[in-house]
Write a protein that binds this DNA or RNA. Structure first.
Lengths: 179, 179
DNA sequence: CTGAACTTTCAAAAATATTTGAAAGTTTGT
DNA sequence: ACAAACTTTCAAATATTTTTGAAAGTTCAG
């Protein structure tokens, strides 16, 4: 790789760095590396890309491209675009990161928190003597997690509906006021 | 007593359900299943457990238990406990979920956001004609992600330092007022 | 110092997840 | 209806992650 310079790098290099990094971090987020890379590629592409262009750019197979594009659509992060006069499908990603983050929060809440809350409710009323330390620790911990989850549930719902400017400026006012 | 009742399940079953679920969800969070299961086990154990007890309860090998306990300590979620008169080490987990969540946010921020921000900074000043749509889309998207990340960085720092009651009640006041 | 008790390491095995590519399926223009 | 253009499927191959367990390392009481 090139040495660090005062000037920025060329677009092609910057793009592949971005794709590599987005892919690396994506895998900590329950999203697989290729999916995150396709997402990154579409995020920085001015125009919608075809499956072939994605395959070519990322050097992946047709099946892989198809499957991950489908999953990105499923997550609401990518849309199909119909181009007049073209037979094949094109794909484009929402570029406003606030909307992307909101969408991810929305989907993860649906896939995780909304499934966990009923389980916690079920586990809340375990049988047994409340004087038994094992029972007490169990019920206290579950109750604590449950309260936390319900609080988080409400907060995330608010965020999902929020406008970016209102959200950040409210938080900043609030948190700034504290010190 | 009664086999089928409206009442909750027995402790042993509830415990294993909780461990299984915490493990299942943990894997969406950059934490592996066994690590999350050990964490769950310690969360509901009134006393600190030895490595042997963890191995026995979760039916895992010594190496696996050792490695995942070490990683949990690394994440700041589990501590070693010295028990007077005992030679072996015992392990215990913080049970206050607010503290657990704060610790997870702190670590993930350190491992992800704090690494991503400098990369975005580097990618911000790509060379090239700003009239070129490819260049413009790239720089705009990176800039957008960067702004978002810096905003999130500040907000998470506030949360990491916050007291639970203050945090939730502030958010509720704020968000409740909006409707 | 010695050996029992305990912890850590790590190469090989097992389990999981991802990717490939060719065949099957679908759509559309003529 | 036909066939070219395109998309989807999925079983097999690959890659990655996790787990095992025995050996090496450490600690400590006597």
């Amino acid at each position: 790789m090139s040495q660090k310079s005062m000037k920025g790098m060329q677009l092609a290099e910057a793009k592949s760095q971005f794709i590599a990094n987005w892919g690396r971090f994506g895998s900590n987020w329950g999203i697989n590396r290729t999916m995150a890379q396709i997402h990154a590629l579409l995020l920085v592409s001015p125009d919608a890309l075809s499956a072939d262009e994605v395959m070519e750019e990322l050097q992946i197979s047709r099946g892989n491209a198809n499957m991950n594009l489908r999953e990105l659509i499923d997550w609401g992060l990518v849309q199909k675009v119909i181009v007049a006069g073209e037979r094949k499908e094109f794909f484009t990603a929402e570029k406003d990161i606030w909307k992307v983050a909101r969408q991810i929060v929305k989907e993860r809440k649906k896939r995780e928190l909304d499934l966990m809350i009923p389980v916690l409710k079920e586990l809340s009323d375990v049988e047994g003597d409340k004087k038994d330390r094992a029972v007490k620790t169990f019920t206290d911990t579950i109750q604590n997690i449950r309260k936390f989850s319900e609080q988080a549930d409400k907060t995330l719902d608010t965020m999902i509906k929020a406008d970016e400017h209102w959200f950040w400026s409210s938080l900043m006012k609030l948190f700034g006021a504290k010190h």
